[in-house]
Deep mutational scan, measured.
Amino acid sequence: MTYKLILNGKTLKGETTTEAVDAATAEKVFKQYANDNGVDGEWTYDDATKTFTVTE
């Protein structure tokens, strides 16, 4: 399945996607991606759209 991440960081905004077997796996990938890019904030997940959002 394809999962999407929306980044609403103070210095980085954008979107990315990943292929993962489940939401938990996608979340690990996205949290590492956000961490690597210096984005740390509040996370939400919408199962209907398979979209994670992180907002600083």
Rank of each mutant, 00 (worst) to 15 (best):
T2R: 14
T2K: 11
T2P: 06
T2V: 13
Y3Q: 01
Y3N: 01
K4C: 06
L5F: 05
L5E: 01
L5P: 01
L5V: 04
L5C: 08
I6P: 00
I6N: 04
L7E: 01
L7I: 15
L7C: 08
L7D: 01
N8Q: 10
N8P: 03
G9M: 12
G9D: 03
K10D: 07
K10Y: 10
T11I: 12
T11R: 10
L12M: 14
K13R: 11
G14N: 09
T16H: 14
T16Y: 15
T16V: 14
T17S: 11
T18Q: 05
T18D: 03
T18M: 11
E19N: 12
E19S: 12
A20G: 04
A20W: 02
A20D: 03
V21S: 13
V21E: 13
D22L: 04
A23H: 11
A23W: 14
A23E: 07
A24F: 11
A24N: 08
A24L: 12
A24H: 09
T25C: 07
T25E: 15
T25D: 09
T25I: 07
E27S: 07
E27F: 15
K28F: 09
V29F: 15
V29M: 10
V29C: 07
F30I: 01
F30N: 00
K31N: 04
K31G: 03
K31R: 15
Q32K: 15
Y33A: 03
Y33M: 05
Y33H: 04
Y33T: 03
Y33G: 01
Y33I: 07
Y33K: 03
A34F: 03
N35R: 15
N35E: 13
N35S: 15
D36Q: 12
D36T: 08
D36L: 12
D36V: 10
D36F: 08
N37P: 01
N37G: 04
G38L: 07
G38Q: 08
V39E: 03
V39L: 10
V39W: 14
D40W: 15
D40A: 13
D40L: 13
G41Q: 02
E42H: 13
E42Q: 11
E42D: 12
W43I: 03
W43A: 01
W43M: 05
T44L: 08
T44V: 11
T44M: 12
Y45C: 01
Y45N: 00
D46W: 04
D46Y: 04
D47P: 14
D47I: 10
A48Y: 12
A48R: 09
A48H: 10
K50V: 03
K50E: 03
K50I: 03
K50D: 02
T51D: 01
T51Y: 03
F52W: 07
F52V: 01
F52K: 00
T53A: 05
T53G: 03
T53K: 05
V54Q: 01
T55H: 07
T55P: 01
T55E: 07
T55V: 09
E56T: 08
E56C: 05
E56P: 06
